[in-house]
Computed example of a mutant assay.
Amino acid sequence: MQTRTTPGAMLKAMREKPPLVQCITNYVAMNIAANVLLAAGASPAMVHAAEEAGEFAGIASASLTINIGTLSTQWIDGMQAAAKAATSADKPWVLDPVAHYATAFRRNAVAELLVLRPTIIRGNASEIIALAGGESRGQGVDSRDPVEQAEGSARWLAERQQAVVAVTGPVDFVTDGERAVRIEGGSALMPQVTALGCSLTCLVGAFAATAPEDIFGATVAALATFAIAGEEAALGAAGPGSFSWRFLDALAALDAETLDARARISAA
């Protein structure tokens, strides 16, 4: 049996058998999220309509990701149908609660999705703090709280939801309520590229589809992959514009050996 115990092994396995990832994401993120998955070696499907999202989630070969960035009542219907179908089919799904604290509409949408038991929750520090019931300083989609301040909230949320929780920022934090690690890397240019974080949610879904037996390890592997690709892209970038295309190239060029050699993952 092929081992998938390291991020590099998971990346290699994903490319050998590209998973189909249903990405219900926002209008801003669709293009870059699809390109990120293709560069990494996965196959994206941007299927969100309520009339087909549930059916597609049931027949899709791999996993589902849900991002609430640009909400509408019709999109919520599609999200709920897809999440129910994924759960029924025992497929992992990822929730990205973008700025869920901003309005009652968003808060209610996320509360209803949490009832459907996401396998993984990925957000910035402000989103995770607020999701755990704390007071965050988030403004719109931007986090105004440091990742380390969200670590306690992430642990609590992981235990309550029985899910893996990933808090992303300058140093990422991942926990399942018992285990926890930090992942270093990336670039200060990453937050300046629209929807790059949203595309990371889709990549987490791709890794989860590749290693559903190790959701914690798959989440860590996805974040480490993103971090190393970000470091590499920043080397020749003059700003966020050139960083954006360099990131896709770096992601596509990243191999298993380099990922394992450069990933900086430490117990928390």
Rank of each mutant, 00 (worst) to 15 (best):
1 M>R: 15
2 Q>L: 13
2 Q>D: 14
5 T>N: 08
14 M>N: 10
15 R>E: 10
15 R>K: 10
24 I>H: 06
27 Y>Q: 09
32 I>R: 03
33 A>W: 02
34 A>P: 02
36 V>P: 02
36 V>I: 10
36 V>S: 03
38 L>F: 08
38 L>Q: 08
42 A>C: 06
43 S>M: 01
44 P>C: 00
46 M>C: 00
48 H>T: 02
51 E>Q: 07
52 E>I: 00
57 A>D: 07
62 A>D: 14
62 A>G: 10
64 L>Q: 05
71 L>W: 04
74 Q>H: 03
78 G>N: 00
82 A>M: 02
85 A>D: 07
97 P>E: 01
97 P>K: 08
98 V>Q: 00
100 H>N: 01
103 T>W: 10
103 T>D: 00
105 F>L: 07
106 R>F: 02
108 N>L: 09
108 N>A: 04
108 N>K: 04
108 N>W: 03
110 V>S: 01
110 V>E: 00
114 L>E: 06
118 P>I: 00
124 N>I: 02
124 N>K: 06
124 N>A: 07
135 E>F: 03
137 R>T: 11
138 G>Q: 08
143 S>P: 03
144 R>C: 15
153 S>R: 07
158 A>F: 00
159 E>W: 02
162 Q>F: 13
166 A>W: 01
167 V>L: 12
170 P>R: 15
170 P>M: 15
175 T>E: 03
178 E>Q: 06
181 V>M: 13
182 R>H: 15
182 R>T: 15
183 I>V: 13
186 G>P: 14
187 S>H: 13
189 L>N: 02
191 P>N: 12
191 P>R: 10
192 Q>D: 10
194 T>E: 01
197 G>D: 02
202 C>F: 13
203 L>D: 02
204 V>F: 06
207 F>C: 05
208 A>H: 07
208 A>E: 08
209 A>E: 07
211 A>T: 11
213 E>D: 12
215 I>K: 14
217 G>H: 09
220 V>T: 11
226 F>V: 15
226 F>R: 12
227 A>F: 10
228 I>K: 09
233 A>P: 05
233 A>M: 09
238 A>F: 14
245 W>Y: 11
247 F>Q: 07
247 F>N: 02
247 F>H: 01
249 D>S: 02
252 A>C: 03
253 A>I: 14
253 A>W: 09
254 L>P: 07
257 E>R: 08
257 E>Y: 13
260 D>R: 08
266 S>R: 15
266 S>Q: 13
268 A>H: 12
